[in-house]
Design a protein around this nucleic acid. Structure first.
Lengths: 101, 101
DNA sequence: AAAAAAGTTGAATTATATGGAAACTTTTGA
DNA sequence: TCAAAAGTTTCCATATAATTCAACTTTTTT
């Protein structure tokens, strides 16, 4: 028997290695992209309409959703604000947890 | 009597205006910067030491903490990973809440 | 099955985040 | 009070995120 974590360690690389870090990062970015898409759909907007709200072309929205790239906080907040959704992020170290708005 | 929100609307600008948006953004970035600083101190590290962990100069850490700039997700994750802290962000729209890892 | 709408992709451009080096300022502690 | 350590700032280079435009593909509608 093998746990999922063990499989990831073996197949992708141990935590801390560049390969594994990239994997974890890409994963989160992918989730983030999907998130934009989900909320947009929830709001019944096309990429073009969302683009208009923010002031960018539909192609830009497409790229954010399919996240070909790393993204800045500003962009994330801009998009979700247009979608009337709240982004909250928090940092937790062991016991304590610091909330960031 | 005036609520804090009313004061902000009046003094900084209504929500949605560029001025107010900038204010709200700067605020969150400031909190984020303070967050880095807090966790770093918690770990008893100097900016230089944290820099070494990541592979950047202390000046770079200073910039992140004082948030002279917008930041990419990657940078944020990189820093907090070095600090062995977990960043979690989630998106909430009205009722439902979507978790991003 | 065509036409229209929605979404994707690639190439190119612009804006800006990342980063280093060095000088400078502030804090710490001997 | 002075020296060392820590933190900040400025100037600069480089990398890359943000963005557009136009052509293309996929999905939806009629």
């Amino acid at each position: 028997m093998m746990t999922l974590d063990q499989m990831k360690d073996k197949d992708i690389g141990e935590i801390g290695t560049p390969e594994r870090d990239k994997y974890e990062f890409d994963l989160r970015m992918e989730v983030l992209g999907n998130m934009i898409k989900s909320v947009r759909k929830e709001r019944n907007l096309t990429q073009e309409q969302l683009g208009e709200l923010i002031g960018v072309q539909k192609s830009q929205i497409s790229k954010l959703e399919r996240n070909t790239k790393n993204v800045t906080i500003e962009t994330i907040l801009k998009v979700f604000r247009a979608l009337k959704a709240n982004v909250r992020f928090s940092v937790e170290m062991n016991e304590s947890e610091f909330k960031v708005a």
